[in-house]
Design a binder for these strands. Sequence first.
DNA 1: CATATATTCACCCGCATGGGTGAATATCAC
DNA 2: GTGATATTCACCCATGCGGGTGAATATATG
Lengths: 131, 131
Amino acid sequence: MDAVLGAVADPTRRAILDRLLRSDARVTDIASAFPISLNSTSKHIRVLERAELVTRTVHGREHVLSLRAEGLGEAMAWMQQYHAFWEQRLAALEEFVMHSTDAAPAEGEPTAESEPTAAGEPTAATNGAER
Amino acid sequence: MDAVLGAVADPTRRAILDRLLRSDARVTDIASAFPISLNSTSKHIRVLERAELVTRTVHGREHVLSLRAEGLGEAMAWMQQYHAFWEQRLAALEEFVMHSTDAAPAEGEPTAESEPTAAGEPTAATNGAER
DNA sequence: CATATATTCACCCGCATGGGTGAATATCAC
DNA sequence: GTGATATTCACCCATGCGGGTGAATATATG
C-alpha cells in the first residue's frame, strides 16, 4: 500500500492516471500531454508500474500503457474504515443535536470550524479517550 | 487533495490515524506508541493537521488530537472513479469471455497475472486508444 | 517562587525524489 | 545497410522529508 499511496501522492502521476482513465496511451503520448520531459514521464510511469497501477504492453518499439485500477483496492479499503468512522460519528452528532433542544450555553460563534470540541466530545464518548 | 494523499502516504502517519481511530489521544500518547521521538511525532501531527485529517483541542498544556475523517472524502471520491472504471472493465471482460467459447488460440499460461493483454484489449476497445 | 511536564521551535543530517540533459539501445522505415 | 522514432540508462542538481538533538515556551504542581 505504501507504493500505491506514495505513487498517487504526486499530482503529475495522478494526472497520468486520469489520462489513462480516458484511454490507453504510449509513453510519448503521455509525455506530450504534460509540461515535463519524456524522461521524467518515463520515471513516473515506472513508479506507477511498481505500485501496480499501470501495466505496460510492449508492441514493437512502442510501450502501450493501460490502467490497472485494482491496485487502488487496498488503499480504498483502508480509507473505507475512516468513512465508516465518519458516518458513525455524524450519526452520533445528529442524535446529540436532536436530544438537546437548548445546546451550547455560552459558546463562541456557532461556526463549524471555530470549536471542533462540540463535535469532538461525542467522539471521545463513543470510544473513550485514554489519558 | 495533495496534502491529504501526501500525508497518508507515510506509514507512520497512517498508523497515527489508525491509533486515533481507536480513541483521541495526546501528542505524548501517540509518541510513546511509536518507536520515533516525541519531536518527530509532533511534526507528523502537524502534517496531518494541515491535511485536515486531525484536529487539535488544547486543554491546558495538553493537546488532545482527534480524527477528522471527512478530510479523506475528496481523495476517496477521486479513487472511486477508478473503482468504477475497474468494475466496468470487469463486466466487459466477463461478457467477452462469455461470448467467445474458444478464446486464446495460442497464448501462454492462463494465469491471471501472466498476460494482462488479454484483459487489456477490451479496455482499448471500450474507450479507444489514440496512437 | 521553583520545578516538573507537554509541546513546540530551530537547527542538523542522510536520503529519496522530481526535474533536467545527453548518450545508449531497440525497433521501424527506407 | 542508413536514418528516424520510442524508450530507457546513467548521471547531475536542488529540494523536501523523515529522523534526530537541544533549547525555548507554556502550563501545572509543590
